[in-house]
Every structure is written in C-alpha cells, then in structure tokens.
Amino acid sequence: MSDISAYLDKTCAVILNWNAYLETIECIENVVGAYSGLSIIVIDNFSSDNSLHEIKEHLSLLAVNSGALFFCVDENDFGRAVNEINAVNSCCFILVKAHENYGFAGGNNRGLSVGMKIKKFDYFWMLNNDARINHNSLPELLKVFCGSNSVGFVGSVLCDYYHHDVIQCFGGGNIYKWIGKRKLYLKGEKVSYLSTVAAATPDYLMGASLLVKKRVLETVGLMDEFYFMYAEELDWQLRAKKNGWHISVAPGSIVYHKGAVSTKGRSYLYHYYLNRSSIIFTRRFYSYSVLVSVLMFLPLVNTFKLIKEPKNLAYAMKGIVDGLFFKYPSLF
C-alpha cells in the first residue's frame, strides 16, 4: 500500500484525555506530523485541570493552519457538527466534552459514537494519549484490513517509550482463565526477536493502539462501560469473535507506549480495577468452576505480592469483592 491517502481519509484517530492535556497535545502533534490528512476525535473525560480549554485552543489553531474543520461538541449534542462534516466530506478535528469521568471504555465510546455518525469513516484508530507513533504505525494496521474481510480488530506492537528496543507486548496478551490473570505476549523481549520467530496472535489486543472497523461497532456494539478500566477490550473482542470477527496483529506497526498515565502515583487504583475487572470478566464468560478457581487464587497471589503494601493489598481485595457483587464505584 504505497499510497494510503484514500484509506487515511476513511480513518479517524480517537484519543482519550483525562487531566493530562500536555500529554494529549503532544500525542496530537505526533499524529498530525505523521499523517496530515487524518481526522482526529479527542474526548475530554471531565478533566479538572483546564484540559478542555487547552486542547480546544490547540485543535482550533491546528484546524486553521491545516484547513480542517474544528468542532467542540457536547457528548449529547453533536448533530450540527456531524451534518456539516458529512456535507463537505472534509478532514476534521472534534473535541467531545464528557459530562463525567466514564473511564476508558465510556470515554472512548463517546468518541466512537460521534465518529460512527460521520459517513466517510470506515475505521477508527483508538490511540492512548501516552502513545507515540511513526509513519508506518497506521499504514501497517490498514494493510491487514485490506487483506481480510473477517478481521475486525488489528493491534500494534507496543514498545517501551523509554527503551525503544524493548517490547511491551506483541499486540496484546493471553488469558489464563483458571487463575484470573492475563500476561502480555512477548513482554520484555527485544524488537529484534520478532525477526527470528513467527509470533502467534494473542488472545486479545490492547487498546493503546487498536484499529477497529465501523462494521464491528454496527454488529457488536461499543465497549461495556461497567468495567471502567481494564478488560473492556477483552470483553469487546470476545463478543466480536462470537459474531464471526477475528483479531490480528500488524508486526510492522510499532507504537511507543509510556503506560499507566491514569493511575500514576496511585497504584492502589491499578490493583483495585485490575482485580475487579478480572472477576467481572470471569463471571460473564466462564463457568462457575472457573470462578471458584479464580476466587481461590487471586486473594492468595495478591497477598503474596502485596503483603508489604497494606493500602494496595486492601484495594486489591476490595476489587475482588466488588467484582464478585458487580459493584460500580468511581474512585477517581
């Protein structure tokens, strides 16, 4: 695919922001620098740090300089913007104002909901605001779609932002259902390792750089917002697989990812939501015997790992209990 301009015109990047406008603006600049004709939807997940104003100013200036359309819309009131974009079929930058912090799934869903109304978009590139791309990141993802009608999701090879030669994961990870754990595929390997093996497709793809077809959204729906953080991509992709879709990894799509921006300095939230999501996912997709096994294993492994971190351990256990009883607290 030497000329991807036609595919870029049908693709929209979706970037979620929460109290990290400097990170998000840097991500936007990175994307615009690589693909000048790419449309972008940014969702501000009810930030309290002036993110909405800062990102609005930046996107409006980018639009003026590039000739793109720019709209700042409410999550429930974007009809006029969609109609104008559909009328002129132009590159656009859209900033969506969320009414509350909906988490990863809910925030991205608001952006995808807007994008689905724009006729020219066939593909949505979910990109974390702490991810940095190069000129091949998106074209390599699109190549996979061009070669298969049954693939609904394509993931990138995520590498450590601070150590570019170290793999965070090859697309995503594998599920170990009996213990309620997941492991990132090829984590810690050198990038050069990819040239020596034929890497398999993992069980699921990470949402840090994930290309999804609009037809998947139309047939499967959006992500389940009840998870708030973690496992929403697993749930989404497993539902898609049950509807006949496949997932794949583009080995040539390299994305450099920082990671854990939302929970930085608050590791207890990581342990809480990770355990909560594991229990919810297990309850929804596996048998009672698997759930019993997970409920035996997770408390033991968390106690072993976090015995010297009482706050983290307490929140990890709370996550297990809240997941078991489908509780939906917002700790942010």
Rank of each mutant, 00 (worst) to 15 (best):
D3A: 09
A6N: 13
Y7M: 14
K10T: 05
A13D: 05
Y21S: 12
Y21T: 11
C27Y: 02
E29P: 05
S36W: 08
V42P: 00
H53G: 09
I55R: 05
K56Y: 08
L62Y: 09
F70R: 00
A81F: 06
N89D: 13
I94F: 08
E100A: 12
N101Y: 09
F104I: 12
G106M: 08
G107L: 01
N108G: 05
G115K: 03
Y123W: 10
M126I: 11
A131Y: 05
R132M: 12
H135G: 15
L142C: 00
F145G: 02
G147A: 10
G147M: 14
F153P: 05
C159F: 11
D165A: 04
F170L: 04
F170M: 10
Y176P: 00
Y176I: 14
K181W: 03
K183E: 06
Y193G: 04
P202T: 00
D203Y: 03
Y204V: 12
A208V: 10
S209G: 08
K213T: 04
E218H: 10
G221L: 07
L222D: 01
M223R: 08
M229R: 10
W245T: 04
H246N: 15
P251Y: 07
K264L: 15
R266D: 02
L274Y: 11
F281D: 06
T282D: 03
R283E: 05
S289L: 10
V294C: 03
V301F: 08
T303K: 14
L306A: 08
M317Y: 14
K318G: 06
V321L: 09
L324Y: 04
F326V: 14
